[in-house]
């Protein structure tokens, strides 16, 4: 695993304000520049190595490679510092996740308090060409949902620019959710997970661990220059069970009683076979 860079959530408010000012200023500057020059912003072309990843019986995780190309024409302004990119991959959602906290009650430790998070992805990956805190400002990251915190990552895009919604959750629980998911390998950040092959073409390998849930994965690609968002693209791929694995999963769900009886029969059959094989008298 490559080094994981946690976003700096505890930046002093002074810096945060300064960064916000900077971001707003550069945005205003960009808009003004675009208006006067009539220049077109960059476009983004994205291609995934495969849109369907198959789970077979020897599946131990997989990888989807993303290729991206920056599109420019003669009117696009020159960028002195080059481009940066970030990819957010959101796996299938679960309706609710309960985070419980143990507390001491007399001599024993038991689950006392809990919080439920709704509509949370079971897989969340953020890859970027540079660590996120170098890539763009914190306020920008909040707006773009560039954060492993799933309550940030799933909330709707705020109407007002710069207005980050408060999820109403205790931050301890949200952090515990991210921490535990990171331990499972289902949430991760790869600070240099995107490589620019040429100044205009980049590549990212999106790892899918063995425990990644089957379902639809949304891949959002963001293009930056000087900390400012230039273009955005959304595509997706699917992780699907195939062949025997898929049939077993479908039977278990649609023909539950028959599936249960078959499992019982299989168990009894092997139990009987064993008693025949090992019979000594």
């Amino acid at each position: 695993m490559r080094p994981v860079h946690a976003p700096n959530r505890f930046a002093p408010s002074g810096i945060r304000t300064a960064l916000r000012g900077l971001a707003v200023a550069s945005l205003v500057w960009l808009l003004a520049f675009a208006a006067t020059q009539g220049a077109r912003a960059e476009g983004l072309v994205i291609s995934l190595s495969n849109h369907q990843v198959m789970i077979t019986s020897n599946y131990t995780g997989s990888q989807v490679t993303l290729f991206g190309a920056v599109q420019r024409d003669e009117q696009t302004i020159a960028r002195a510092s080059g481009y940066d990119a970030a990819v957010i991959v959101r796996g299938p959602r679960v309706d609710a996740v309960t985070v419980r906290r143990k507390e001491r009650l007399g001599p024993i430790w038991i689950n006392r308090t809990q919080e439920t998070f709704e509509d949370i992805p079971r897989y969340l990956a953020i890859l970027s060409s540079r660590p996120l805190d170098e890539l763009t400002s914190e306020i920008m990251r909040g707006r773009l949902r560039l954060d492993l915190d799933p309550t940030v990552a799933t909330q709707m895009q705020p109407e007002e620019p710069g207005a980050v919604q408060d999820s109403g959750h205790n931050p301890d629980y949200a952090q515990a959710l991210v921490r535990l998911r990171m331990q499972e390998g289902q949430y991760f950040e790869i600070g240099r997970g995107i490589t620019f092959i040429t100044p205009m073409i980049f590549r990212a390998a999106i790892p899918l661990p063995a425990g990644a849930p089957p379902g639809n994965y949304e891949v959002e690609t963001l293009l930056f220059a000087d900390g400012v968002l230039l273009a955005r693209d959304i595509t997706n791929f699917e992780l699907v069970k195939t062949g025997f694995e898929q049939r077993v999963a479908v039977w278990a769900e649609t023909r539950a009683a028959a599936y249960g009886f078959l499992t019982v029969l299989m168990a009894m059959f092997f139990g009987w076979i064993a008693s025949v094989i090992f019979r000594r008298d």
């Binding site: 609710a96 309960t98 419980r100 143990k102 001599p107 430790w109 535990l180």
Partner: peptide, 14 residues
Amino acid sequence: VLRPTELFSIANGG
């Protein structure tokens, strides 16, 4: 009885 190293636990479902 022992103080757990991780106080939090997660479970799918509400």
